[in-house]
Computed example of a mutant assay.
Amino acid sequence: MLVSRRPVALTLAAATVVLAASTACSSSSSDSDPDSAAESGAEKEESGPSSPGAERPEDQAEDPAEGQAETEQQAAPEPAWDTSPSSIAAIGDSITRGFDTCGLLTDCPEASWATGTDAEVASLAAQLLGDDTADRVWNLAETGANVADLPAQARRAARHEPQLVTVLIGANDACAGDVESMTSVTDFEADFAESVELLRAESPETQIYVSSVPDLMRLWEEGSESMMARTVWGMANICPSMLADAGNRSEGADARREAVRERVQAYNEVLARVCAEDELCRYDGGAVFDYEFTSDHLSEWDWFHPGESGQRELAALAYEQVVANVTTKD
């Protein structure tokens, strides 16, 4: 499984009061000094007749075009993606924890595609940061996690204010006891969107790299011919929605597996859409889902999680996306 937006005019009453006062003053001047009255009349002709509610020059509306131009000039530029972040936090599930990569039924974070230190894996962190990753790398993923666990992980990651957060989630949401028990697309979107919103609110400058969910159907295709794989999947009850009765090729079994694949594709559409709404989020464009992994990339312990070579491929795919000059949003 390679896997949050005038000008003021005088009121009519106020303008009438001002006009009445002005008229009274003009009448008084006219009675006592005809020449002054004549001059006053000339001034009125030059300035134009006064009318109730007329706006003074300082009260006139600003030209909308000028206002818009000024707004555009003042608008902040879109934040630029940093292709060489100096700190990384990883959130997600057992894939990012390196479960069953180094040993049976155990996490192996040193072999994680995102934050591992194993030279054979060449993790994303190792490629971006080099060997000095102390206090600059945090693996907060949890074995067994699904998307409902992601907001809490995102909050923990935000406390470190990392320059980059990696996300790989969704396989466990599809790997339910049966098709009916898979996480709904609506719930998946709500939890993932909340996670992105939390990161953006609590660590505004953090970049987010989102991996697509791996193609579980390909996993079945690669292992279903192996007696060992089928036995392990059955005994350990691994991803029953896809892998149960792995040797069964009946129409009903095929329909079940296809339903799981369609749900994974729907999850990936959610990841792409939500990520596209955030200026500092990059989705892998389906790179992990489309990757044609083989049994050689799988754990020798469970034929499900990535082995060392599988973790290495995940790291390579992530690095390619993170250092790209153009953001992948689809």
Rank of each mutant, 00 (worst) to 15 (best):
E225H: 09
W220H: 06
E222D: 03
V196C: 05
S211M: 10
Q207C: 11
L216T: 05
R159C: 07
A236I: 08
S250D: 07
S195Q: 09
P151G: 11
E202W: 14
E221M: 00
G170D: 12
P151E: 02
D149S: 07
A201E: 02
C239H: 10
E194P: 01
R249F: 15
Y209K: 00
L199F: 02
H160N: 14
G177D: 05
A158Y: 11
R159Y: 06
I169Q: 04
M235H: 15
M228I: 14
P240G: 10
A190E: 04
P151V: 09
T186N: 10
R159V: 13
P162S: 15
V210Q: 01
D245H: 01
L168M: 13
A193C: 00
L150Q: 01
D245N: 05
E189V: 05
M217I: 11
I169V: 14
G170I: 12
V196T: 04
V232M: 04
P151C: 12
H160K: 13
A154K: 12
D245V: 00
N248K: 00
S226Q: 00
A236M: 14
H160V: 08
L198P: 03
R156N: 15
S211Q: 09
R156P: 08
R218H: 09
C239K: 08
S241Q: 03
L150S: 04
L219S: 00
I169K: 11
F188Q: 08
A174G: 09
G234T: 10
S250L: 02
S203G: 14
L168G: 10
N237R: 13
A229I: 00
C239E: 03
I208K: 02
E222F: 03
T186L: 11
V167A: 00
G170C: 15
A193Y: 03
N172C: 13
E180T: 15
E189K: 05
E180P: 06
S226L: 00
M235S: 15
Q153P: 01
E197I: 05
I238W: 01
D149I: 10
M227N: 10
S203A: 15
R159L: 12
M228D: 08
I238V: 09
M182K: 08
G223H: 01
E202Q: 15
F192C: 03
R159T: 12
A174R: 09
M217W: 06
N172L: 12
S195E: 05
E225N: 06
A229N: 01
L164A: 06
M217E: 13
A152P: 04
L199D: 00
N248C: 07
V185K: 11
L164K: 07
V213S: 04
S184N: 03
L150H: 05
A229K: 04
I169G: 10
S250F: 03
V185C: 08
R155P: 04
A236H: 10
S195L: 10
V213G: 08
P214Q: 07
E161P: 05
V185D: 05
R200W: 01
T206V: 06
E222S: 02
I169D: 06
T183C: 13
H160F: 12
A154F: 10
S195V: 06
R155L: 09
N248G: 07
L199W: 02
S224H: 07
C239D: 05
S203E: 07
S250K: 00
V165Q: 04
P214M: 13
L199R: 01
F188E: 04
V210P: 03
E202S: 15
S241Y: 08
E202D: 15
R200Y: 06
D173R: 11
